[in-house]
Amino acid sequence: MTTSDRPSQTTQRAELYARLGGHDTFERLTRRFYEGVATDEVLAPMYEGDLDGGEERLRMFLEQYWGGPTTYQEQRGHPRLRMRHQPFRVTPDARDRWLTHMRAALDDVALDPEADRAMWDYFVRAADAMINTLEPRP
């Protein structure tokens, strides 16, 4: 196969998005995730009553990251995850809670093992990168 015969990166990402189940998968994933966040005493207050907005933003971001529509960037610009999370106290405890809710959401979505592993690896790396303080809540 020559370089010109290979699918473009955009095509490969779109195929990945489709293999993951497309919009329906990401909608179910983020809905389930935010059901957990809504009852979390550490994470819920960070959303200042805007859990629906958070759910939509996360869904759009994940869809774009995993090869789907670029709606997130069109509406909000570059993700700049560290900058967008800087106003919040993201401690190791907050990270662990975030990961707990995301693990439950991934389990509910029940992706094939390879896709689950890829997404989980990404979520762990991303959550680790968001930690911006080691200080517990005041």
Rank of each mutant, 00 (worst) to 15 (best):
R13S: 01
A14Q: 01
A14R: 01
E15N: 00
E15C: 00
L16A: 00
L16N: 00
A18T: 00
A18V: 00
R19E: 01
R19H: 01
L20T: 00
G22P: 02
H23Y: 11
H23K: 06
D24E: 14
T25H: 11
F26N: 05
F26Y: 12
R28I: 08
L29D: 04
L29M: 12
R31N: 07
R31W: 04
R32E: 08
F33K: 03
F33D: 02
F33L: 13
E35A: 14
E35D: 14
E35I: 12
G36E: 01
G36V: 03
G36D: 02
V37I: 12
V37P: 01
A38W: 04
T39N: 03
T39C: 02
V42E: 14
P45R: 06
E48Q: 14
G49I: 13
D50C: 13
D50E: 15
L51S: 13
G53N: 11
G53T: 05
G54T: 05
R57D: 12
L58K: 03
M60L: 15
M60T: 03
F61P: 01
F61G: 01
F61Q: 01
F61K: 01
L62T: 04
L62F: 06
E63W: 04
Q64T: 02
Y65Q: 05
W66T: 02
W66F: 14
G67N: 02
P69D: 05
P69F: 02
P69H: 02
T71A: 12
T71W: 02
Y72A: 09
Y72S: 09
E74T: 07
R76P: 01
G77T: 09
G77R: 11
G77Y: 08
H78Q: 12
P79A: 11
P79M: 08
R80W: 04
R80C: 07
R82Y: 04
R82Q: 09
M83I: 08
M83C: 04
P87F: 13
P87Q: 11
F88L: 11
R89P: 08
R89V: 03
V90G: 05
T91C: 13
D93E: 15
A94I: 07
A94Y: 03
W98K: 06
W98L: 08
H101A: 07
R103A: 14
A105Y: 07
L106M: 14
V109A: 09
V109W: 06
A110M: 10
P113Y: 09
E114R: 12
E114H: 11
A115I: 06
D116E: 15
R117K: 13
A118D: 10
M119S: 07
M119W: 12
W120Q: 10
W120V: 15
D121I: 07
V124A: 11
V124L: 10
R125Q: 15
A127C: 10
D128V: 13
D128L: 12
M130Q: 10
M130G: 08
I131D: 03
T133Y: 06
T133E: 10
L134A: 06
P136R: 13
